[in-house]
């Protein structure tokens, strides 16, 4: 059996761009690149300014939101309205269903978060392309990990989008800014560490790159596996 089902990928792409969420996916990167162009035109090249845009807006806001929109748009509505039963009532391994959905979600992250990050970085820092590359690579790690996490949320709770947003605001945003120790358990900070190392910045202090990478992989593999497991024991009941 194939690991990824082309049929589920095709259905996934259609479902994302067949809903209003699809429009939001275009808006977020446009804002990021637009702001980068504006900053460059008004302020010129500045190390601090580019970091504010690429980190504060890019890694902290755009990457997780694109991952949340893409992943929850792929799983949560189908679980909510029960149409996932048409995928589940098939002799297809549950891991294949999850992997196929994640392929679409990660492709969205690449197209609507990582590529715009690269563009925004290149616009902001023509003198140092390593900044753009660093942030783009960081967004790949962070975005993929967020997709796996939000996929798991989608099969665990019916309020995946709300729980995901609260997690982003409270844990990654509020507590991450206040408490230093959160960096050990923060996907955004792991992705920032990748940007740090590639571009020679210090967005996050005292976080080994190997730890950041390993933690990201644990979330990606663990989230995918747990999602598949959960889907295998999926309870579908009627309206009774």
């Amino acid at each position: 059996m194939r690991l990824v089902s082309p049929t589920i990928v095709r259905l996934g792409v259609k479902s994302i761009f067949g809903r209003w969420r699809g429009v939001l996916l275009f808006v977020l990167p446009l804002v990021l690149v637009g702001l980068a162009v504006l900053a460059r035109a008004l302020v010129g090249q500045s190390e601090e300014g580019s970091q504010h845009t690429l980190y504060g807006l890019g890694l902290v806001v755009v990457v997780p939101l694109v991952a949340l929109l893409a992943t929850s748009g792929l799983l949560a509505p189908e679980i909510d309205d029960g149409s996932i039963s048409y995928l589940l009532a098939k002799p297809v391994p549950r891991s294949t269903i999850v992997l196929s959905k994640l392929v679409v979600a990660v492709a969205c992250v690449l197209a609507f978060a990582s590529v715009p990050m690269l563009l925004a970085g290149l616009v902001l820092r023509t003198d140092d392309p390593s900044v753009a590359v660093g942030f783009a690579l960081g967004s790949v790690l962070g975005g993929t990990a967020y997709c796996a996490l939000f996929a798991l949320l989608s099969v665990v709770t019916r309020h995946a989008v709300v729980v995901g947003l609260v997690y982003l605001l409270v844990w990654e945003g509020l507590l991450g800014g206040l408490l230093d120790g959160v960096r050990w358990l923060s996907i955004t900070r792991w992705s920032a560490e990748v940007a740090d190392r590639v571009a020679g910045l210090t967005l996050v202090a005292q976080l080994p790159l190997t730890y950041a990478l390993a933690a990201g992989v644990v979330v990606i593999v663990g989230g995918t596996w747990l999602t598949g497991r959960r889907l295998r024991a999926f309870n579908l009941t009627g309206d009774e």
Binding site: K14, R19, G82, S83, S85, Y86, A89, G238, D239
Partner: peptide
Amino acid sequence: LVPEREALFDY
């Protein structure tokens, strides 16, 4: 299986 629920892939 023909489920009771109406929802399909409307798109």
